[in-house]
Write a protein that binds this DNA or RNA. Structure first.
Ligand SMILES: [Mn+2]
Ligand SMILES: [Mn+2]
Ligand SMILES: [Zn+2]
Ligand SMILES: [Zn+2]
Lengths: 143, 143
DNA sequence: ATCGGAATTAGAATAATTCCAATTTCTACT
DNA sequence: AGTAGAAATTGGAATTATTCTAATTCCGAT
């Protein structure tokens, strides 16, 4: 059995009927397939627009509902840059995000092998981290 | 001459008439004094409510204008946690933020001495970072 | 086939923030 | 001091991402 992460562009109908205890409805499958397919960190509205191709009657509210369900079941990740609209990421590995200010494109950035939070942050001991988000903005080297 | 960072609770009238090339108007001084005073990462609305004590006619639009001016002149920092409303921080040192999910209180977290971004992130070489935000959520150790 | 809970839907509501146009305040210059 | 122009402030309207609501539809279990 192969993890979803390694299927590049699954057709919605190839997705299982349940994931992480979440019932995969037609709409949730469609939304998930879009996020897994083009790995470009789409916004809810991006997903909505793309979903309408194959599913013209899907509603934006449903897209939001699906995203919320997928995120809370840890099937996709929500990504935030300052006050911009949230984006969604299929990469469940530990990673953070870099937005190229020129193109707006968001790139995954992974941590150096074996790095722990406590290695670079002065955390009061005993602190339990439940959520971590690192967002970078800048320019890609052009030399 | 002492940096603003070290004045615990400056009275607005003690603030200079210009900072970082930004003209310090009555309203901007008031907003800045509030942020420097109670170092609790207030939201724009928090600032608005507090400002009304000494300046009952200040408007929320002005508070937003002042905050935007102070942030863009690097006099205060804007802090974001997911989709919550922005908060403002007077600490200009390199640091990030931890929100205690129990109390909602936000704590400054500093980096370990001498740590560089490239030490823990696999950044494509040549990348120029203009902006970095690290936000943590969790619980404070209670043993 | 039917029941009951869960999901979807359209549209209204919310809330943070930004925009706008009118007014006030400053600053610089006579 | 008096004044013109620029910049800042103001109240209210607009915007926009997201959430809520209530009605309908769907689906899996009996
Ligand atoms: Mn989580
Ligand atoms: Mn900056
Ligand atoms: Zn990602
Ligand atoms: Zn801070």
């Amino acid at each position: 059995m192969i993890s979803l992460q390694h299927i590049k562009s699954p057709k919605p109908e190839d997705l299982p009927s349940e994931l992480e205890g979440l019932r995969m409805t037609k709409q949730r499958r469609e939304v998930l397939a879009i996020i897994l397919g083009e790995r470009d960190h789409p916004t809810a509205n991006d997903v909505y627009v793309r979903a309408q191709n194959r599913m013209p009657t899907i509603s934006l509210a449903t897209v939001y509902n699906c995203l919320e369900a997928l995120v809370s079941h840890h099937i996709v990740r929500q990504v935030n840059f300052e006050r911009e609209s949230s984006r969604y990421c299929p990469n469940l590995e530990d990673h953070c995000h870099f937005q190229d200010e020129e193109s707006g494109i968001i790139h995954d950035v992974i941590f150096k092998k074996g790095v722990k939070l406590e290695d670079f942050l002065e955390l009061p001991q005993g602190t339990e981290i439940n959520h971590l988000e690192i967002s970078l903005k800048g320019r890609i080297g052009s030399e």
